[in-house]
Design a protein around this nucleic acid. Structure first.
Length: 398
DNA sequence: CATGCCGGGGT
DNA sequence: ACCCCGGCATG
């Protein structure tokens, strides 16, 4: 978008504005804490839940792979390195498998009350395991082609393949449009979701290794958990949208609004848990605003670097980067999300609406940079529309 | 004084 | 609805 914008003259701005309407939907399904149970099965379950039928086409293939795995697993001896690699592979397979529509595991499958898109509940507790900040789009993007290179896995994997995995063609199960399109536009970068890490690597294996070694302490048991601690990000998204937009402090990427999707956003399922949730999931937000900011996608990132998890509340929601939110609808992104999902919201989102409610009192100047500051008067055409019209800034709401 | 934006007006 | 701007509050 940024590029488009910059190239386009003022006149084009308007069209850009129009385009904005199709904000990007980052609909992400958040996994529940349950997923955190460190068990292979739970891993599979949770993933499957999140992905819905991500790649039905791969089911057969997947099964095949599993079979192979189960039959090849027990190798008398292998060098530590090879073992590690195998485990990595295993993790990859797991990841791939997670896309299967329904991976049933005999036990407590019903225990997980996740419905399609029920982020809210997941959010309820992103607890410590911290990885829960899982958004379907992120995972959905996990290479459509389930690492072909996988040839074998450790025994546990094999078992899973044999008994734990029963893939049934259940297209309707959790078929979310978002999942589909989401997966389509991400490609290769992986970001560590570990709190205050945010490392981005281009290889999945590398990321897994990073997580396992640095964050999971290389624990044996953790081999299959890496998946929870990283997320795939689209390189596309990483592209800077606008020069000054990226004040995000972390490695967080921004998303561009070039995608035609209604906007949606990840929001903290529960205001409080929010901060802790997803160690550092990226809150990418695309909002529409009344005034249709010409430029761009608004992106929000939860500041990863904030040592203390709770940032949302401080500094106007932390929508640091740019968020354009229409005042008329509440302002906080989180709120918006909550509203959409009928989640009883409230609490932290201070940022917003007060101004409208009791209008007389103009709220003091927020510390947030406004378009004027960011772009300067000379680049007024890059301001959000609201700013241009001398209205409350939509891009950088307080 | 610069900034943010309400309220109101023009098209 | 879109756009602009006077004028006021704020820092």
């Amino acid at each position: 978008m940024a590029a488009v914008k910059s190239q386009a003259g003022p006149g084009a701005m308007q069209s850009a504005t129009g385009r904005k309407k199709d904000g990007l939907v980052r609909h992400c399904v958040q996994e529940k804490a349950d997923a955190q149970k460190h068990r292979p099965n739970s891993v599979l379950r949770s993933f499957s839940a999140g992905f819905g039928e991500a790649w039905p086409a791969n089911l057969e293939q997947t099964n095949t792979v599993l079979s192979l795995q189960s039959s090849n697993v027990h190798l008398p001896y292998r060098s530590p390195e090879s073992v590690e690699m195998d485990e990595i592979m295993a993790a990859m397979v797991l990841t791939s498998l997670s896309c299967s529509p329904v991976i049933q595991s005999p036990t407590q499958r019903d225990a997980l009350p996740h419905g399609p898109l029920d982020m809210e509940c997941g959010g309820g507790e992103l607890s410590d395991s911290g990885s829960s900040g899982y958004w379907s789009w992120e995972h959905g993007s996990v290479s459509p082609a389930p690492s072909p290179s996988v040839t074998e896995t450790d025994s546990s994997m094999g078992q899973l393949g044999d008994e734990g995995l029963r893939v049934e063609p259940d297209p309707g199960a959790r078929d979310e449009p978002e999942n589909r399109w989401c997966k389509s536009w991400s490609r290769g970068a992986y970001r560590c979701l570990w709190p205050s890490c945010g490392k981005v690597l281009t290889s999945r294996v590398g990321m897994k290794r990073h997580i396992r070694i640095l964050h999971l302490g290389g624990a044996e048991q953790s081999h299959r958990e890496e998946d929870f601690y990283y997320t795939e990000v689209s390189s596309e998204e990483e592209e800077p949208t606008s020069p000054s937009l990226s004040f995000t402090s972390g490695p967080w990427s921004s998303c561009s609004s070039t995608h035609s999707q209604p906007t949606s956003r990840e929001a903290p399922p529960s205001s409080s848990a929010f901060s802790q949730s997803a160690p550092s999931s990226v809150w990418q937000i695309h909002t529409e605003h009344l005034y249709q900011a010409p430029c761009a996608p608004i992106e929000t990132t939860k500041s990863p670097d904030s040592p203390s998890s709770c940032d949302w509340t401080s500094a106007g929601l932390q929508l640091r980067p740019q968020i354009s939110v229409s005042r008329s609808r509440s302002v906080s992104v989180g709120e918006q999300w909550l509203q959409r999902n009928n989640v009883p919201n409230r609490s932290h989102t201070i940022s917003a609406s007060p101004s409208r409610g009791h209008c007389s009192t103009r709220k003091g100047r927020g510390e947030a940079k406004k378009c004027r500051k960011v772009y300067g008067v000379e680049r007024r055409d890059q301001w959000c529309t609201a700013c241009r019209w001398k209205k409350a800034c939509q891009r950088f709401p307080d």
